[in-house]
Every structure is written in C-alpha cells, then in structure tokens.
Design a binder for these strands. Structure first.
Lengths: 345, 345
DNA sequence: CTGAAAGCGCTTACAG
DNA sequence: CTGAAAGCGCTTACAG
C-alpha cells in the first residue's frame, strides 16, 4: 500500500504538502502540486480510510436528521436504522441531531432546517416536504458545503447529494402482479389508497393499474377510494366496498389505516374468502398477515431508509466519498404468513 | 469519550499497562490489573475501534475461505459477498485466501484446511462437509485460537463461532404457502428435488409438505422426484411428470437444474398454465421468472452468506467482538416478475 | 512486573 | 509557498 510518507519521500516534499495536494487544499505552488499528484497517480495511491478517520477524530461532525410526525409507526423503523448507522460511525466523531416534525407544513420544516444550520450541522438527512421553499433551502445548504441526502420521498430538481428510497411505481406493479396471481387472472378488485394529493400514492396506483391492464385483462378494478391514511375512514370505506360489491374478489390496501380495513374485512359477510394485498410491515399489518386476512404485504425496508442516508453522509464527511448513484434504491420485499417474522435480518 | 491515556493518568500507570489489562495480556500484577480494570469500568471505557484498527495495521490477518466446487452459479454470488466484505476491511490489514474445492470429499476439505493452517490463517470461513473429520478439525482450530464461522450449511455440535445461513425448513414452508395461494387451495402438485442424501433438501421437503398438510388440505402432492441437481435429469423427470399427469396444476422445483425443468415445461402440452415455485436467483431462474414460466422464486441471498462470515470474523480479529447470536439468520426473499431485477439492493 | 518510546496513516496549527 | 512537529487512540518491542 502506498502511503503519504512514501509519496513525500519520492517527491522530496513534506507529508503536509502531499496532504494539501491530495485533498485540494490551498497553499501549494502549481509546480509542486503537479509533481506530487503525478507521483500519487503513478503509484496508484489510495487514501487509507483508517488513517483519515483517526486524524478526523479531532473534528466534530454533526448530521441533522428531519423526519415527519411520528404518528406513522413506519418511522420507528427508520429511527432504528438511523441509530444502527450511528452506532457504526460514532467512533469517528459523528454526532446526530434527530428532529421530528409536528406538522407537514413546509414552513415548519424550513424553520427546523434553519435551526439545525445555526446549530452547526455539517450534513443533513431530510425527508423533504415537496415545496419550493424546501428546494431552495437544500440548494443553499449544498452551496454552503452542507451535503443533503433525501430519503423516503425525493424533491425533484434540487441539488441534494442523492436520494434513498424506493421506486414506488414498481411497488404498485408488484402489488398488481401478486393480486393477479392470487385471483388466477380473473375477478373483481377494489383499491383503498391514501390521498390523490400525495405523489407516491398516485404512483402506486399507476403501477398497479398498469400491470392489471397489461398482464391481467380478466381482472376488473371496480373502484378506488381514498381513506386519507386514517384508521376510522379506512374502516368505513372498506366496509362500504364489501357491502356494495358482494362478489368482490380482491382488495388492495395501499395506505396507512390498515387496522380499520382489517376490522371491516372481519366484520363483513363476504370478507372471509377475499384476497388482500397490502403495504408495509407495521405491527397491525404483520398481525393481519399472521391471521391469514392479508395474503401478501409489500414492505419497503424502512430500516435501510434510515440507515443508508447516515452511512452515505458519514462516508462523504469522513472520507470524501461521493455516492456512486443519484438514486440509492431500496428493494421491495414480499412477505407472507410463513416469513413475516423474518423482518430486516 | 474515555481513552486509554485518561485511564492511565488516573491509575497512575503507563498506557502500555492499561492496554495489557484491557486486552487480558500477561505481564501485569494482579493489584494493578484490578485497579485499572475497575477504573475502566467506572468510567465506562469503550475501545475506540479506529485507534485499534490503525495500530493493527502492522499485523497481518489472513482469513481462509473454503467453498464447494463452483459448478453451482449460486457460489458466484457468495464470492461477490466475500469480495464486498473484503473491500470494507482490507484497509485494516485483513487478507483473504479463497479456496474452491474440486469435490465434496471430506478428505479433500481436510487437506485444504491443513494447507491453510500451514499458511498461517488467523480465521476460517467454511462451508463444511458434514463429516466427523471436519468437525474434529474445526474443534482443533478453535482450540488453537483460530475462529471458524460456518456458512450456507452448518455442522452440528462443533465449536464453530457461529453459523451464517438460513432456516431451510422455513424456505420449504414459504414455498408451500406460495403454492397454496397460487392454486387457491386446491389442485394437484409435484415436487422435483435434488437428493434424499442431502440434509437441506429433505428439510425443504419437510417444510413444504407440513404447510400443505396443515393449511392446504385440498392440495394433493402426487409425486416427489429426485433430479440429482442435474440439468439433463431435471428435463427428463419434469417432462415425465407432465406427461403422466395431464391434470397437474403445480410444480415445485427445489433444486439446481432449473434450466432443464424450464425446457420441459415449455415443451409439454400442459406446461403453459402450470403454476411453478422455485428456489434461488441464478440466471436461468431469473430468465424463467421474466418469461412468466416461474411464478415465484425464493432466494437465499447468497451475497449475504458470503459477506457476513467475513465481517463477523474481521470484527472478531480486529476488535475482539464476539457474535451476539449462534445462528446468524439470512432471510428468505420472495421474487416475482415485477421485482426480480431488484436483487441484493 | 512496569514504563517510555516509537509507530500505524493522515491532518493541522504554526514557524519560517 | 513549504516543512517540521504534534496529535488522533491503540499496540508493541524493548529497556529497566
């Protein structure tokens, strides 16, 4: 392994000077800069990350994390991922400031961002509200040397370092294929989703209906109803669907409020034989899968959605590693009764 | 963070002495040993892994890896996992010696183990042949300070550090449930498996039949046939099954030789509508899933089966970290046409 | 048994 | 602009 000492010896300069060249720090003449970087390249120098990490311990890195209100148990797992990553990097001098929002207001999020910048964060992991205000704030931070990684949902045309999340259209497609297989290609289905005003909900619907159209023309989508991610609304609309369509064969539950839908299915006369595909691995869903009410549930590995942004930002801060991809893809996981206990292992 | 320097200062001894105490090295009086370890505990000392890693760079750690003959493309992914882990730890002075067997003979494996021990390995990741000879060798290495992690298949009652693999009975159960759902609980199925003489193949069958019996009494298992993991045999037995049972509804392919089975299904008159569940994500399988011949395939994440043993052994060697569990469980992953492209992300 | 010193590879504050 | 020195936390060979 080539070291800085070795390069310094060959270039006949000090190790400090080599360090400046290799890390594009000012204070070296062009002539020396060129000579040193030539030698480094010729020898195939790779920085030793352990050495870097040890020296960096004198610095203090603070990564801010901003998540939406914790009403959604989904974010429990995201937090577990953040903590797991933190455990791996805390010895390198990295600290975390974890902020939970109280609303979904862009203004509140902007306030938290400003607060964190004042506190001196050196990087930010953000589940962004889709608003120009936030996009501008991201660009300003990036411009000011504070890298931002978005997770779970992205914000388009911003200068964030990368996005960690999943291809939501594909999630919808997976749900569509599973429903098609469950119904052996024929029957009547209904969809319960969160809200038309949320981008990802529309994308799930888009993927689901596309697969139905292309691969399962024998399946008819009777209705798609909003539940606003609320448990009580979920109960009502699901029960109503089951009552209005006595011959319903399948139900795709795309949003939160799964518990309410489950109660409706258990209550309805025609609920027993109905095929159900849902999303996420929250406790209510897991329970319904175990009971046999839900046939398949498609999870998004929220753990990794918390874990990866911290690891990516740590790599950036500690080792100047820039992520290789713009979109760090989390895969869709399919769980059934027999393997629902194997979450995140 | 408490450092060795801090403890040394308080205990009024040198840093070297503190190091000896904290790492149970000889050459310290009992009195000093007790005083120092008391202070360390009182201050909540945690070793800084970066410091340890840097100092350890002077040492040379060599991890041996022994895998079966590479006839099985499955082991390509295991190797990718080994390499990925190696990339993460090579800066800590860890080297890998990767050995591929030519046979499944215990004697050959024993020879390779002895060769590696002569070469001076400090740890071993082993896919063990189930034989007393190998068990004894593992125990001898462990006794001599060389930790052994088994992966993919385990060897019972040995002193290996831990096992990385999956619950094969559960894999069979997952396959059973998927088949049950595909057939809506009624129909006739057949199973093609590798060999009765291989433990894991029997375990898959056990799980599959247990779920059929318990949850899907309306499904009849007509026959279970061996293919010896061979492509040509696979073709023959699958074709024969399809010809002898014109009303066959489902086929569970439990072993290698998937390509042959796929050709038979495409060739047979009744092959088109048949429901198929298979195992692994090898290229042939992926292709058949994309074509719609295979409905579900259950993968074992071989990447992680290669990655984890190296990480576990590195942690042990570098930081004296002992694995928290005896069985490091890899989860069963279910893939279908719409998400078969999301492997290992 | 104990301590002082040098070293792992990189960074930084300071002197020239 | 350049270099010498000290330091990050831990380990080790050596002197006493």
């Amino acid at each position: 392994m080539v070291t800085i000492r070795e390069i310094a010896r060959i270039a006949k300069v000090s190790r400090g000077t080599v360090d400046k060249v290799l890390n594009n720090r000012p204070g070296v003449s062009d002539e020396v800069r060129e000579r040193v970087s030539g030698i480094a390249k010729a020898l195939g120098y790779k920085p030793n990350i352990i050495g870097k990490a040890l020296a960096n311990q004198k610095k203090a890195f603070l990564i801010g994390v901003i998540v939406p209100p914790d009403s959604n148990p989904y974010f429990e797992d995201i937090k577990r991922g953040v903590n797991a990553a933190y455990d791996e990097v805390k010895y390198c001098g990295i600290q975390i400031d974890y902020q939970v929002m109280r609303s979904l207001e862009p203004k509140e999020q902007l306030g938290i961002i400003e607060h964190l910048v004042d506190k001196g964060i050196t990087a930010l992991a953000l589940n962004p509200i889709n608003d120009d205000m936030i996009r501008d704030a991201i660009d300003e931070m990036t411009g000011g040397g504070i890298p931002v990684v978005t997770f779970t949902s992205d914000i388009l045309r911003s200068r964030r370092l990368c996005f960690v999340g999943l291809d939501v259209v594909k999630s919808g497609r997976v749900a569509g294929e599973l429903m098609g297989k469950l119904l052996q290609g024929k029957g009547k289905v209904a969809v319960v989703f969160g809200s038309r005003s949320i981008l990802s909900h529309n994308q799930r619907i888009e993927g689901f209906t596309a697969v139905m159209r292309q691969d399962y023309p024998g399946i008819e989508i009777l209705e798609m109803v909003e539940n606003l991610d609320r448990d009580d609304v979920s109960f009502e609309v699901t029960l109503s669907l089951l009552e209005r369509y006595p011959d319903l064969d399948g139900l795709c539950l795309m949003s939160a409020g799964i518990g309410g839908a489950g109660r409706a299915i258990k209550l309805a006369e025609n609920g027993y034989g109905i095929k159900v595909v849902s999303f996420d691995f929250i406790p209510e869903t897991v329970e319904l899968v175990k009971e046999g009410i839900i046939d398949f549930t498609i999870g998004q590995n929220p753990f990794m959605q918390g874990y990866q942004p911290i690891k990516i930002l740590s790599d950036y801060l500690l080792f100047d590693r820039v992520p290789q991809v713009d979109f760090y893809r989390i895969s869709n996981e399919i769980k059934i009764k027999q393997n629902i206990d194997e979450l995140y292992v």
